[in-house]
């Protein structure tokens, strides 16, 4: 059995005197999708931020390819794509400018690739419009266009379906499933039931785990 790509060992997360979860173990292997669910305030976002290296656990350790997350920051950054509640989209910049920068931050991309990605998320014709004129759903799509570019294997997505319309949700579900089918990995939180699940789908209910 191959070693897990990302694993968490007895994670404990404490926020302001309140234990969100304790002794949590999880591992993610190639081709798997992990949906983190649970009621509000159960620590879904916190878990994702821990896995993405944005936050440090109160106790426990997270490892990427068997090595601690903290010890290999550059390696982690190359293997992991994080899109949070807010995707880092600037309202004053156009969709293209936003993506050029976000890609440059991780893996530089060409203009053509960016236009193709914007096309794939249904934003053809909106490439050079300032993002603040776009609707919330369209802005979310700008952020999600990164998933259509040369993306790292592990995606960590916090509520990626927010503000998307039905078609957008279906497209994103299919895209995520395809990514897993190709050997990629997805960790996400969402309140809705996924219509399309890859073979490696699992659910982690933090409400029950705690």
């Amino acid at each position: 059995m191959p070693s897990p790509f990302l694993e968490a060992l007895s994670l404990t997360c404490e926020r302001d005197w309140r234990v969100l979860f304790e002794g949590l173990d999880l591992e993610i292997r190639a081709g798997e999708m992990l949906q983190v669910s649970g009621p509000n305030g159960s620590g879904k976002t916190s878990l994702l931020r821990l896995l993405g290296g944005l936050m440090q656990p109160t106790q426990g350790e997270i490892r990427l390819n068997g090595k601690a997350l903290l010890a290999q920051r550059a390696e982690v950054a190359r293997n992991l794509l994080w899109i949070g509640h807010a995707a880092g989209i600037k309202g004053l910049l156009t969709a293209e400018e936003n993506l050029v920068w976000l890609c440059a931050l991780q893996r530089p991309s060409t203009r053509d690739a960016i236009w193709t990605a914007l096309d794939a998320v249904g934003l053809r014709g909106f490439e050079d419009v300032p993002c603040h004129t776009l609707s919330a759903g369209q802005q979310r799509r700008v952020g999600l266009a990164r998933l259509h570019l040369d993306a790292p294997p592990l995606w960590i997505l916090d509520e990626p379906f927010t503000a998307l319309d039905k078609l957008g949700v279906a497209q994103l579900e299919r895209h995520l499933a395809e990514h897993c089918e190709r050997g990629g990995m997805v960790v996400l939180t969402t309140h809705h039931t996924l219509g399309e699940r890859p073979a490696g789908y699992r659910e982690l209910d933090l409400g029950r785990a705690a």
Binding site: L54, A77, L80, G84, A86, G88, K90, G91
Partner: peptide, 17 residues
Amino acid sequence: RGDYEDGSLEQWVVSPH
């Protein structure tokens, strides 16, 4: 503040730079 609120800072922190 703007970068904090729109998530840009998170992207900076997780970037390899």
